[in-house]
Amino acid sequence: MATPDLYRNLPTSDELSDSDDIPVDNEDQNFIPNALLFLLQWIWQARNDWFFGVDMAIYHTTGANPRVPVVPDAFLSLGVERRKQGKSRKSYVVWEENGIVPILAIEIVSQTPGAEYDEKAEIYAKLGVLYYVIYNPDFWQRDRHQPFEVYRLVNGSYQLQLGEPFWMPEIGLGIGRVRRMVSGIELELLSWYNQQGSRYLSLEERAERAERLAARLRELGEDPEQL
């Protein structure tokens, strides 16, 4: 728990910019993190001690200037309010979150290199982000990396982890890739997994499965509404 004196005289979230007015240059950088968010809202619907940010600024005091944020494509923090004092966050300000830094950061590599493997990795490591996921489905050969990589912070440095989906015990979730149909289009996405390696289904998939089951029951002469 941070002490009040540690963050004395720092700007408040109302004083900090919540947008750099620079749009993302890759459709996946918006869709994939939001798909993870919507799925997590169902998995952890009974919990209020987490926050998942998408393309949101993280303000911290481990850099040269606390007014200069780092902006991951997505991040997860545990032990914080889902809605801070009942309101939406403009940005994630570490000194307003009792010093709690995100436990997971996710970057999706686009055509324009974004320093995911060096500068941003150094920032997240210094900040203390435990897990760092880099998803690079299209440009991994250019960057001489694998399409999906999970790093864990060990003694202040990131070490590449093995296995997919990769289980993160401190979070209670696994993460990995999946190919599935979304509104009639086959896409590769990131998804959450349980400890047994089974993928959590999206709302769309669960609705489709329920409809197939209902149709099968009707074929057998059963009324699914009466079951």
Rank of each mutant, 00 (worst) to 15 (best):
T3P: 01
L10D: 10
S13H: 07
D14N: 13
D21S: 14
N26D: 14
Q29H: 13
Q29W: 00
N30Y: 15
N30C: 12
L36T: 12
L40G: 15
Q41G: 15
Q41C: 12
Q41H: 11
W44C: 12
A46W: 11
D49M: 05
W50E: 07
F51T: 04
V54R: 06
Y59H: 10
V70N: 11
V71T: 15
D73G: 06
D73F: 03
A74W: 01
F75H: 06
S77D: 06
R82G: 08
R82N: 12
R83Q: 13
K87W: 06
R89I: 05
K90A: 06
K90F: 02
K90Y: 03
S91M: 03
V93K: 05
V94Y: 02
E96D: 07
E97C: 04
N98I: 01
I100C: 08
I100L: 14
V101M: 03
V101K: 09
P102N: 06
I103L: 12
L104H: 00
I108Q: 03
G114Q: 13
A115W: 08
E122P: 01
E122F: 10
E122Q: 15
A125G: 14
L127S: 10
G128M: 11
L130R: 15
Y131R: 13
V133P: 06
Y135L: 08
N136P: 03
F139L: 10
Q141R: 15
R142H: 09
F148E: 05
E149G: 05
E149C: 04
V150I: 11
V150H: 06
V150T: 10
R152P: 00
G156T: 08
S157Q: 10
Q159L: 09
L160M: 04
Q161W: 02
F166N: 11
I175P: 11
G176N: 05
V178E: 12
R179C: 01
M181T: 15
G184W: 09
I185A: 10
I185E: 14
N194F: 01
Q195K: 09
Q195T: 05
G197Q: 08
S198N: 12
S198G: 03
E204F: 05
E204P: 00
E204V: 01
E205I: 01
A210Q: 12
L213H: 06
R216A: 14
E219R: 13
E222L: 14
E222G: 03
D223Q: 08
P224F: 09
Q226M: 12
Q226K: 14
